[in-house]
Design a protein around this nucleic acid. Structure first.
Length: 565
RNA sequence: CGGGGCGUAGCGCAGUUUGGUUAGCGCGCAGCGUUCGGGACGCUGAGGUCGGCAGUUCGAAUCUGCCCGCCCCGACCA
């Protein structure tokens, strides 16, 4: 490809709208163009990189027996109502009507359609196991798209669906896919870690995410300093620090004028926050819920949502709390009734807690569970924090940030039961099919690859996903001897089947070299009057400091051999 | 959805506080010439509904109201 003809221009200044590095570099290099919030066009270079990633994914999916197919973006809303996932996705689901006023959705994912498809085509255990995948555009009306390609509303995703006869077979498939995913990230130049994850709106039993560890990542990962436990913070468990051991004392009311927060309470009474009980009110699908947790801990809303099995969860407003006859700021599990009470097990770690008195300006000392109050649900709803104990081995937990580059789920029979996808086993008995699903956001993977592979000058493409392998960069293209040598070398390289970006522009060296660094192809070849004189060409790998001079004669063959490795 | 910031040429910005000729600058773009191993220089030139609508005013990029869009933090998010 001749750079002079390439659609898409590099920018000298970084567009001010971009905050994170992959976003800045993709814009600056002319690889993407914004259309609206979270909606991008891919220009030729960006598109080539994206397609390279797709092909790597295809190869790895095919290698484990996956079969590629294609399903529509446009789907009847009815199908989503059957699994109630129209509710689960809520506002993130793009909906529209056709000319007959039929309700349609722009698919955010394809479990419904594929389950329906498999239902029609699988009858027997002999048809299983089955691995089907597609690379397709998906739509999600994200509340806040961000970070360039990191979180967008229209994106390309590879999703693989697995169909097995039983739990055990699913486990085998699951491990096989995890293996393929590891190879994919590795080939894309991305070190990834597998972490336990929440399964969110998709439901299902078990789920793991592939995280690329990066400061710019949206996700918080909690991992053990000793063993291999690691989990997304929204899912992570931990051993909380224990409270003090002491004799349980009788209840005692204390006046606490003006004290509203846990912070103020601890200061006012001169006790640690871990000696208090925090009370929080939530509205779960509209129902007011009382939540208690030890004062030094925070509520993990994902866990709480899962525990309550609700779709919509938010903090209750002061008004809602007041209407229920309760006092925010001095609420207490003591004597509270007519409302669902949920508590974190941390309320049993320690004794003689200080809790609210359910009236203003007062608290109660020496509160103990279950002596003084009962709860309806005692379940882990606490955020795990660095410094706490690993749930497996007890060692110290650490925290880091990561980009979610892939997500795999064991779905069980959620979809197959609702959409009636069954098979007949060896003994003639009908069972629902066991499913798994496995997704990779390709644009996000592209962005993650840049986040991990760049320097202050620009992108450093990992070879397998680079838009072109070679950046042929002749300086002084207006000199006939340079131009003709460059043209010849370009032809030779293309003839060897190499992917070459040929900067045939007549531009100053500074411009050409800086563009080469910005665009970031793995190998840069320089021709100039100097190298022509010695019948040589300069060879430099992007990301390495040292250049090498090789003879012009046979250079194309040598490159071919280099890339064949 | 809550909080904050921003919207003036393809990109980066000034001008808005205190309304007043033809709205500026740098980069980029076009032409000519000189340069040529890390974003060269000179000359000439093109390019703008000042996000939109309405209002105030003799006069609005500038003041007022409403709306739209984009970015960031949070909530949210397979």
């Amino acid at each position: 490809m001749r750079l002079s003809k390439l659609f898409g221009k590099t920018l000298r200044q970084t567009p001010s709208e971009a905050e994170n590095i992959s976003h800045q570099l993709l814009l600056k290099a002319g690889m993407i163009h914004p259309v609206a919030a979270g909606i991008y066009s891919y220009l030729p270079l960006g598109w080539r990189a994206l397609r390279k990633i797709e092909n790597i994914i295809r190869e790895e999916m095919d290698a484990i027996g996956g079969q590629e197919l294609m399903m529509p973006v446009l789907q009847p809303l009815e199908l989503w109502e059957q699994t109630e996932r129209d509710v689960a996705f809520g506002q993130s689901l793009f909906t529209l009507s056709d000319r007959r006023d039929r309700k349609l959705v722009l698919a955010p994912t394809h479990e419904e359609v594929i389950t329906e498809l498999v239902r029609r085509n699988v009858q027997s255990y002999r048809d299983l196991p089955l691995l089907l995948y597609q690379i397709q555009t998906k739509f999600r009306d994200e509340a806040r798209p961000r970070g360039g390609l990191m979180r967008v509303r229209e994106f390309t995703m590879k999703d693989l669906y697995s169909f097995d006869t039983d739990e055990e077979a699913v486990n085998t498939t699951y491990q096989k896919v995890i293996g393929a995913y590891k190879r994919i990230y590795e080939r894309c130049g991305l070190p990834s870690v597998v972490v336990e994850a929440d399964s969110g709106a998709i439901g299902g039993k078990e789920s793991h995410e592939f995280m690329v560890i990066a400061e710019s990542g949206e996700e918080q990962v909690i991992h053990c300093s000793k063993c291999d436990y690691s989990a997304n913070a929204e899912r992570a468990e931990s051993m909380k620090l224990p409270g003090e051991e002491e004799e349980a004392l009788p209840l005692e009311e204390v006046a606490t004028p003006g004290v509203k927060t846990i912070e103020e309470l601890a200061n006012f009474l001169g006790i640690p926050k871990s000696k208090t009980l925090k009370a929080v009110f939530y509205a779960a699908d509209g129902e007011l819920i009382f939540v208690a947790i030890r004062g030094d801990l925070e509520v993990n809303e994902v866990k709480l949502k899962n525990a309550l099995k609700c779709h919509d969860l938010r903090l209750a407003s002061d008004e809602e709390v007041r209407e229920a006859g309760l006092v925010a700021g001095s609420a207490s599990p003591l004597g509270i009734g007519g409302i669902k009470r949920v508590a974190d097990p941390s309320i049993t770690l320690g004794v003689n807690f200080v809790a609210g008195a359910n009236k203003p300006d007062a608290h109660v000392k020496n509160v103990n569970h279950p002596r003084d109050f009962a709860v309806d649900l005692l379940v882990d709803i606490a955020i795990a924090q660095a410094g706490e104990g690993c749930p497996r081995c007890g060692s110290k937990l650490l925290s880091t940030r990561g980009i979610e580059a892939g997500h795999v789920f064991k779905l069980g029979t959620f979809f197959s039961e609702r959409l009636d996808a069954t098979f007949i086993d060896r003994d003639g008995v009908e069972h629902p099919i066991f499913m798994g699903c496995y997704g990779i956001g390709i644009g996000r993977l592209l962005a993650a690859a840049i986040e991990q592979n760049h320097d202050e000058k620009g992108i450093i493409w990992p070879l397998p996903i680079a838009p072109y392998q070679v950046h042929l960069c002749p300086l002084s293209m207006d000199k006939p001897e340079v131009a003709s040598a460059a043209e010849r070398l370009y032809l030779d390289l293309e003839q060897e089947g190499l992917e070459v970006l040929f900067d045939d522009r007549i531009e100053s060296p500074g411009v050409k070299l800086n563009d080469a660094d910005l665009l970031g192809m793995p190998l840069r070849l320089i021709l100039s009057p100097r190298t022509i004189k010695s019948q040589s060409v300069e060879w430099k790998r992007r990301g390495e400091k040292e250049a090498e001079i090789i003879p012009l004669e046979g250079a194309a063959k040598r490159l071919k051999a280099f890339f064949a490795l």
